[in-house]
Design a protein around this nucleic acid. Structure first.
Lengths: 232, 232
DNA sequence: CGTGAGTCCCTAACACTGTTAGGTGGTGGC
DNA sequence: GCCACCACCTAACAGTGTTAGGGACTCACG
């Protein structure tokens, strides 16, 4: 029972031809289902109806597959509408990027340690740079600002998504995670950690949206300071 | 040939008692030697002169060992001197944190997805919050600013340390990585990616220190805008 | 003194991982 | 007809995290 092979397979339904793109999409489905830790070559292979070793025909190693996956993740990002001032636009940019990283499982971890300049990421960079220059930033500043925004959002979501592995407080089985963290801070010795104890509520404020908004506003303020007053 | 066991082992040289702290230090040595990908339970066990399964007596699983490792990494951070304005102090804070993450191998990846409130991290947070409040930030702003700075530095170093896995340009075997990336940008079709082509040099500017400094200054500017003019 | 509990380590095994070597059937060009 | 090539396969290797069960040792208690 040999399945599809090279060449035009005729107008029959199946035979999806197994391109690198198809691999990336399969990896994305496995990621969504089993998470990054559960994403193995064998599973991705099974997802496209093939055995693991065959993947190495299309891909150098797992790292390269993850590169494809990374760009596939970026593929579902779409730039905000080009209306309003630069500030609104980049505010929306940050929020959309964060939303993307939060929505597809483990996306932050996948994207994190990888700089895979696939077509999707390149398109986003192009669009961002265009807007930053239009806002009035110099070439060098535009390049750096784009880098800054990306680093911040990625770093933020990565922290946001990290489980609080409180080594001491493992007994707090099911309570809300913010409460547990708050208890941890409050339980600290007040003479050595006065600020942590004092700010326990603020530190464990579970409204991540507000935290993110704070960061975005600070950075946008900082960028605004680069512009002549009339362009802010 | 039974080795050390419980209780005071007498004044003989060996018998280091295998605490969780010792495990963390051993893990740190393995990390430095073999990187995060090469850090296995068996190797850490060997580092302390023990078999792998024995680690599970002291540690719930590998994740927990990585938590210990995370705090051990933070252990070599020391806060900057408490002199000068808040701006200099946090400028130094960011640079020191980045330096730390760059200096110990794979530290950014280790720290990234993990929020392990061990004694070392807690000490740093305490110190930061104290300075932020002294600078004049409100409690809520201080908590958020601390989070913002951490997220930025981690995100930055993570990107900085990520290899450019240019799927198309694998032929460029040994040339400087910035040159390769620059070539990649310049080789793009200018009609679809005009800005990337135009800013190729700025985007691949290899001076990461300057890029980092840019980000730090933007964020500090943004924080300064929260303060009344006389305290900036 | 004997016994049981508790501590800390061991061996053996399980299912799974990424990756390579080498083989195999089908397709296209000469 | 034959040869090269493509795209897959099986089989295996070394290594992974983790668990089950056992064994030596120390200490408290009766």
């Amino acid at each position: 029972m040999p399945q599809n092979h090279t060449g035009a397979p005729g107008p029959d339904e199946a035979t999806p031809a197994l391109t690198r793109e198809a691999l990336a999409q399969a990896a994305l489905r496995v990621l969504e289902r089993d998470g990054l830790a559960g994403l193995s070559m064998r599973k991705v292979a099974a997802e496209v109806g093939v055995k693991a070793a065959s993947l190495y025909w299309h891909v150098r190693n797992k790292q390269e597959l993850l590169d494809l996956l990374t760009d596939a993740v970026m593929g579902s990002a779409e730039p905000p509408p080009r209306e309003g001032g630069w500030r609104e636009q980049f505010h929306a940019y940050c929020w959309r990027y964060r939303r993307l990283l939060l929505d597809t499982r483990d996306a932050a971890k996948v994207v994190a340690g990888r700089l895979a300049p696939g077509p999707n990421l390149l398109g986003l960079m192009e669009d961002q740079l265009d807007r930053l220059r239009a806002a009035g930033l110099s070439d060098a500043d535009a390049a750096m600002a784009s880098y800054l925004l990306g680093a911040f959002v990625q770093g933020f979501v990565l922290q946001e998504r990290s489980p609080i592995s409180a080594s001491e407080v493992l007994g707090t089985s099911r309570r809300d995670i913010a409460d547990a963290a708050g208890d941890l801070f409050r339980a600290l010795p007040a003479e050595t950690f006065p600020n942590l104890v004092d700010l326990a509520d603020d530190l464990t404020e579970p409204d991540m949206d507000a935290r993110f908004e704070f960061g975005v506003q600070r950075i946008l303020d900082g960028l605004a300071a680069l512009l002549p007053p009339e362009r802010r």
